[in-house]
């Protein structure tokens, strides 16, 4: 009995390796995917906040196997002359060489560059999720620069979705310390500066960074005229084209990227992607809010 089971599973594995497209097509024809999900369902998300104590805020996000860790470190800068009231948000993505067999250490990959572009668009340019004025300390003298670095640890598809959620979660839990600029031009905790001036003043709690909007992404693919939602790495290799849609908490479309591929998509299909993204948004927003409330509650 056991021998037959093993032979069956070996045959299935061999078929999958030799004819991946046919293997997949058989599942899709039945309206289901190899991991058991229906075509319209994305993977469950899990969010872990504050995992790295050396970072000013951090978030570990997993969609199935796809894993990204975002960490923010705050540093001080002198604001630029033409924007004296603004700080800076510097985003970087690194595909850790362990995340996929194609990655090698040293060379920054193309995939990482694309992800950085999408994150910059989502958080700064289009959605203006972060208002850089919030990062100012003393106009013209000092401001915060938040280095948001995201490491992709396990690359199993939907990287744009995972990295954006990790970035948003890290930003949502970022607390800006209360600081003041001394006469000598140094930035010190306000309690110190306040003690020097008026010793009776109480120490002030760090302030949370307010996100003006919360953008989240969903990657969908087109396979034999069927829309597949929330792709794994294997699926990304099989679909004819994929589209990443970013929507925010007010239901606005922040961005949509269809990067080439072997098939075209008509407007109706793109609308379907937007609807799917909105549905996914409700799901993710709930999980994110729960995680943040738990994290804030634990101090």
């Amino acid at each position: 009995m056991a021998a037959a089971e093993i032979t069956d599973s070996l045959e299935a594995d061999a078929f999958k390796k030799l004819y991946p497209d046919q293997f997949y097509a058989r599942f899709i024809a039945d309206g289901i995917r190899p991991d058991g999900r229906p075509l319209g369902r994305a993977r469950t998300a899990s969010i872990g906040l504050g995992a790295v104590s050396t970072a000013d805020s951090s978030a570990l996000v997993k969609f199935g196997n796809s894993t990204a860790l975002a960490g923010i470190k705050l540093e001080i800068m002198v604001p630029k002359d033409d924007t004296p009231n603004q700080g800076q948000l510097s985003i970087a993505v690194e595909m850790a060489p362990m995340c996929s067999p194609d990655m090698r250490p040293g060379r920054p990959s193309d995939a990482a560059q694309v992800l950085v572009e999408q994150l910059n668009n989502a958080l700064l340019a289009s959605a203006k999720a972060v208002n850089l004025d919030d990062l100012c300390i003393d106009p013209g003298k000092a401001a915060w620069v938040a280095y948001l670095d995201i490491y992709v640890l396990d690359s199993d598809g939907s990287l744009a979705d995972v990295t954006l959620l990790a970035a948003v979660a890290a930003l949502a839990t970022l607390r800006l310390p209360h600081v003041a600029v001394t006469d000598g031009g140094n930035v010190v905790p306000s309690s110190e500066a306040a003690e020097a001036a008026a010793p009776d003043e109480m120490a002030v709690e760090p302030t949370k960074l307010q996100l003006r909007s919360v953008p989240l992404a969903l990657t969908c693919g087109l396979y034999k005229d069927q829309l597949i939602v929330g792709l794994t790495a294997e699926e990304e290799a099989l679909v004819a084209t994929s589209v990443t849609t970013i929507v925010d908490d007010q239901g606005r479309l922040i961005g949509q990227l269809k990067a080439g591929g072997r098939a075209e998509m008509d407007i109706a299909r793109l609308q379907d992607c937007i609807e799917a993204a909105k549905l996914r948004y409700a799901e993710l927003a709930g999980i994110l809010q729960q995680a943040i409330t738990q994290y804030d509650g634990s101090g």
Partner: peptide, 26 residues
Amino acid sequence: ALSQAAGSAYAECGKTKVMVGVYGPR
């Protein structure tokens, strides 16, 4: 700890956290 690597491990000792992925032989 990882799905794509041939072998992997995650280790945490106090506040030191390390993730390792192994590929090969290749």
